[in-house]
Amino acid sequence: AEDTGVRVELAEEDHGRKSTIALRLWVEDPKKLKGKPKDNGAIEFTFDLERETPDDVAQEMIDSGFFHESDMKIVAKSIRDRVALIQWRRERIWPVLQ
């Protein structure tokens, strides 16, 4: 995946059974963002693979003041890339469950 400067990782082990997963997001390289992020914290949140989109979460992070509006796309892309990887991995490791 492209290096967006925003890192997203699983916050818990994925067993492929739940549609909701816990993710953790943090800024690795603030210079890649247009606006100034709120702080240096890691933001943990849950994401429903079946019902939600990365854009929804990115917008909520902006609404909550974590990121500037101009960074909506970069945050959404970072989440989207990680979610795509999780789904790809699920399909390979647990195809029967999917």
């Binding site: 914290g41 943990e44 949140f45 849950t46 909520e60 003041g65 974590f66």
Partner: peptide, 27 residues
């Protein structure tokens, strides 16, 4: 460690914790 919780009006909960130094990229 200090945790901050932010709840968006749509109901999603964000829990903010400090990033360990080892996870931050050196500039």
């Amino acid at each position: 460690s200090s945790l901050t919780q932010v709840v968006h009006s749509a109901g999603r909960r964000f829990i903010v914790s400090p990033v360990p130094e080892s996870r931050l990229r050196e500039s």
